[in-house]
């Protein structure tokens, strides 16, 4: 609950299993708030969070011990060198053995491709490198729960793929990776489970397959003229438009299409996301 009375989150009831968990939602849906609650930076007004048996209200220390966190904004550093930042994080997480810590830090730097930049001041790293340093610090102490908030924002496609792969790899282990994103593409097949958030509420919880299933038969391909395109755009949520000479091929999401010749096609996650958003918000209905 914000001081102005706005509720950032309401009625959240989730049980997140091990493996990668994707939290999808538009900007302002409350993802970050949820993340910050999960990492004990914010205290929920009411409700309980239980992580690996620890009550977040009562056992923050234990939870903080098994947590790795990469915040959404991760750009400005104090005047630490790359390896110092990581070393500092490692030490604060209880890695007291100096030799072992050094090895771990070096390995982690190697892992995220920052070994060569280890002596550079963290502030001088590029955006992608900073993100990688961010994930490195989140992983440095082998946490059981890894929470990454919008990690791919601002990354180039190559960096984004690397990132996704890195997270997939980690999620293979017996850990929970909670990945929040507003980019549907980030919820890869590696996500065993996902939730869709909107306006502070969970509108879907399940596997990506289940989500896809919900959108089956709801995605249509329509061939229209330029004038019709505007009409369609007002009637249905348009996912893509492809120019075909004078005509356009339009993909829309809808329970049914009236008045146009439409061809059903198989949905992907993005279609499903739009379908949910449309259902949830009724953005495109004219009723």
């Amino acid at each position: 609950m914000f001081p102005n009375g706005n509720q950032a989150l309401k009625n959240i009831n989730l049980e997140i299993p091990t493996g990668m968990f994707g939290l999808l939602g538009p900007n302002g849906a409350g993802k970050s708030t949820l993340m910050r609650i999960l990492v004990a930076l914010l205290e929920p007004t009411s409700g309980d969070v239980n992580i690996f048996g620890y009550d977040l209200r009562k056992q923050r220390k234990e939870i903080r011990g098994i947590l790795g966190y990469l915040p959404q904004d991760f750009r400005f550093f104090a005047k630490y060198k790359t390896y110092e930042f990581l070393d500092y994080a490692a030490r604060l997480s209880g890695m007291n053995n100096g030799k072992q810590r050094k090895q771990t830090v070096d390995a982690m730097l190697e892992n995220v491709g920052l070994f060569d930049a280890r002596e550079r001041y963290a502030n001088k790293l590029s955006g992608g490198m900073k993100r990688r340093l961010g994930i490195a610090q989140a992983l440095i102490h082998n946490p059981k729960v890894i929470i990454v908030d919008e990690p791919t924002t601002g990354l180039d496609p190559e960096e984004r793929i690397r990132f996704r792969n890195l997270l997939s790899e980690i999620s293979e282990k017996e850990v929970i990776v909670i990945l929040s994103t507003h980019i549907v593409g980030d919820i890869s097949s590696a996500c065993k489970c996902m939730a869709l958030m909107n306006r502070g509420e969970v509108s879907f919880f399940g596997t990506p397959e289940e989500m896809l299933k919900k959108a089956e038969g709801k995605v249509w391909r329509i061939r229209v003229s330029g004038d019709e395109l505007h009409a369609i755009d007002k009637l249905y949520p348009v996912i893509s438009t492809i120019p075909l000479g004078v005509d356009w091929e339009v993909q829309v999401v809808a329970d049914e299409i009236r008045g146009y010749e439409a061809e059903s096609c198989s949905p992907n996650l993005e279609h499903a996301y739009v379908y949910y958003m449309e259902n949830d918000l009724n953005l495109w209905t004219n009723d």
């Binding site: 011990g65 991760f74 400005f76 500092y88 994080a89 604060l92």
Partner: peptide, 16 residues
Amino acid sequence: RDKKLDTSEVFYVRPL
């Protein structure tokens, strides 16, 4: 500084 630097939070989530 803690307020200004968005990277400080990663130390706040450590168990100290």
